[in-house]
Design a protein around this nucleic acid. Structure first.
Length: 637
RNA sequence: GCCGAUGUAGCUCAGCCGGUAGAGCAACUGAUUCGUAAUCAGUAGGUCACCAGUUCGAUUCUGGUCAUCGGCUCCA
């Protein structure tokens, strides 16, 4: 029987039923095959060798597409697994998917793999690639597959098969050479198609991502269609290293994390503190503009209050405690408690709502040692925190206002972000009804505002669901900064009320939210985002005066005073060095403007600005330069 | 917390098989007074992360602790 195949250019060709996709493609466009890794038959990605069984739409998956690349990388991970098992007999395989920038494969092996083993493994991989083994797909019954992997002592694969849903009767396996792996596919036609790959690092990883399970050894690698793309990617990794905020923090003298002081505790140096001050000042003004009240609570509160809020039961392992006069106090890991007490200090009317309490609140959290990371993950940090107490019917507009605020703020810094809705976790407090209400409120607000979002099941806070805003840094890592959490529970536990229009008591709803998140983390992300070259309005030093010789110092002093007077953060660099040297130093400090002062400038009463991107702005009267800088700052550039 | 790696001068890094340490840059001093990314010379600087053990002797070997890095888990 003949079947009809429609290609991507809408051309239709008839074939015998069961013809391999690759043969059909040959009849259509032979040359398209050279860079095709797989095909989609009626939108389902399958191997090029797959038979076409019915009238179908056929699309090629090219190696240059993101889908094609991920198939290629998945295939490389199989080749790596084969190589690892050949080099290290007895190594057990588990899973090996493609990921955003490459792939990994998790192994169990009695000895530990080291980066030094990579050349051996890579050499073996090359051999496998040169042999050009085809990837052969076979269907197995569940039982036969279990038997096969049991014989091979691949207990992780057996576990994977046994955990498949009951209605799954058949599984597919892939072979290349002597290597057999349980895999859904699709794969590239043969190993010879792999042109560029590299193993990157080894790390421990829990089997199935569960910390109660055995830890396996994960080898990370990456692969590309061409050598050129691979080397571009490796260069990018090098570049990313250069903009690591920990390195820049030291080079630009912004902050330190000192072993003597303690892990995860940041010490801000003058320039770092100035940056922080500038961010915080901007934020305070933005909050006042948007109807927030500034408040401030104490750093420690009696343990009973933490018991009342539920933190003691659900967050204790992350908290620090201290004892004063035989009374136990909890050092705050969150700012909400004081804000609750402020609300409770008076009888509130529905006319008072919403109330928006804002605090740059410093909190302490006992984070596990292994997660600490520069400014991005610390044990003491300051949140730009606010708690909004409102009537349920005000939730939607409040959430909208926060989302607008976040959007505005991220726009200032030029960050892209993604939105996630996180739902009820296992260890949580409150009734199902309240969780439903809260989750629906967040969801509706997102929908009403046409905000696209993903759902993150079970990832909410213990007291309520949340909307997370994840922004992307220079290394494409996503960082949670802004978040909105909807909470019916704390108002209940603290018995918060307002008097409604009906004269009766009602329960307000609370939103917890942050815009930048933690100031420390945000600064870390900012530093990487700008590669240390902060915009002028945030630069701790906005311009530096460079004298050509000592005799230019008196004039440069008068210019400096004028700049300082005008509120510009100017620095003097009058050292007895050649101009080129001073420019290099200023350049490495990423100071936005270098003002060269020599005979010409003294004569003209001007400065000669050079921007850090290497442009000379010619000779400019001092007042004009001041006006220029002020204009740039006003535009938050 | 878990897996692995690492810890030598302010920074980046050498230091073979155990005999108490070097380089470049930075710093300091002097000379030089110079026009858009490194002037020259000299000087100083280290309990080799910390604590034990093995040894005649440990930066080097062994064990432990702490910290950092790459991941996992967790998270602002």
């Amino acid at each position: 029987m003949d079947i009809k195949v429609t290609f991507s250019d809408n051309k239709e060709i008839s074939f015998k039923e069961g013809i391999p996709a690759i043969e059909a493609v040959k009849a259509w466009k032979q040359e398209a095959l050279s860079s095709a890794v797989a095909v989609k038959i009626n939108k389902t990605p399958v191997d090029l060798s797959s038979p076409i069984k019915e009238d179908s739409k056929l699309e090629l998956i090219d190696i240059s597409s993101s889908e094609g690349l991920s198939i290629l990388r998945h295939s490389i991970s199989h080749v790596m697994a084969q190589a690892v098992q050949e080099v290290f007999p007895g190594a057990k395989v588990s899973i090996g998917p493609s990921i955003e920038d490459g792939f990994y494969y998790d192994f169990e092996y009695q000895e530990t793999f080291a980066v030094d083993d990579f050349p051996k493994i890579e050499k073996r991989m090359k051999k496998i690639i040169d042999a050009d083994y085809p990837f052969v797909r076979e269907e197995f019954s569940r039982a036969a597959a279990v038997k096969l992997f049991e014989e091979k002592k691949e207990n992780y694969k057996v576990e994977l098969i046994n955990d498949l849903p009951e209605d799954v009767q058949e599984v597919s396996i892939y072979k290349q050479g002597d290597y057999i792996d349980l895999c859904r596919g699709p794969h590239i036609p043969s190993t010879g198609m792999i042109k560029a790959f590299k193993l990157l690092n080894v790390a421990g990883a829990y089997w199935r991502g569960n910390e109660n399970n055995k830890m396996l050894q994960r080898i990370y690698g990456t692969g590309f269609a061409t050598e050129k793309e691979l080397s571009e990617y490796l260069n990018l990794l090098e570049e990313a290293k250069k903009r690591d905020h920990r390195r820049l923090g030291r080079e630009l003298d912004l902050f330190q994390v000192n072993e003597e002081a303690g892990p995860g505790l940041v010490i801000f140096h003058p320039k770092g503190m100035l940056l922080r001050y500038l961010i915080e000042e901007w934020e305070r003004k933005e909050h006042l503009k948007r109807g927030y009240d500034m408040v401030m609570g104490p750093q420690i509160l009696k343990v009973d209050l933490w018991k009342k809020s539920g933190h003691f039961d659900h967050y204790r392992e992350n908290m620090y405690f201290t004892e004063v006069d035989e009374q136990v106090y909890g050092i705050k890991p969150m700012n909400c408690l004081s804000h609750m007490l402020i609300y409770k200090s008076k009888i509130r009317s529905y006319r008072d709502l919403p109330l928006r309490y804002f605090e740059l609140g410093t909190v302490h959290r006992h984070e596990k040692t292994g997660v600490l990371h520069g400014l991005l993950r610390v044990r003491q940090f300051t949140q730009d925190d606010a708690h909004i107490l409102c009537m349920p019917e005000q939730l939607n507009s409040e959430i909208r206002a926060i989302a607008d605020f976040v959007n505005y703020a991220m726009g200032i810094f030029g960050f892209e972000y993604e939105v996630e809705l996180s739902t009820r976790p296992e260890n949580s407090i409150g009734s199902d009804e309240d969780w439903d209400l809260a989750t629906t409120a967040l969801e509706n607000a997102l929908k009403d505002n046409n905000i696209t979002y993903d759902v993150n099941e079970g990832d909410g806070a213990f007291y309520g669901p949340k909307i997370d805003f994840k922004l992307k840094d220079a290394l494409k890592r996503k960082w949670q900064c802004a978040t909105i959490q909807c909470d019916f529970t704390l108002p209940e536990r603290f018995d918060l009320n307002y008097i409604g229009a009906d004269g009766e008591k009602h329960r307000p709803v609370m939103l917890h939210r942050v815009i930048l998140g933690a100031v420390e983390r945000f600064m870390g992300v900012l530093i990487e985002h700008y590669a240390g070259a902060l915009p002028v309005w945030l630069s701790p030093v906005q311009c530096v005066l460079l004298t050509v010789t000592d005799k230019h110092i008196p004039y440069a002093e008068t210019v400096h005073n004028k700049l300082i007077e005008a509120g510009i953060r100017s620095e003097r660099y009058f050292d007895n060095e050649k101009l080129g040297y001073k420019i290099r130093q200023a350049q490495m400090q990423k100071i936005p403007y270098m003002l060269v002062i020599g005979d010409k400038e003294i004569e003209a009463g001007s400065v000669a600005p050079r921007s850090r991107d290497g442009k000379n702005l010619g000779s400019l009267p001092v007042d004009e330069f001041i006006a220029l800088l002020q204009e740039i700052c006003a535009k938050k550039q």
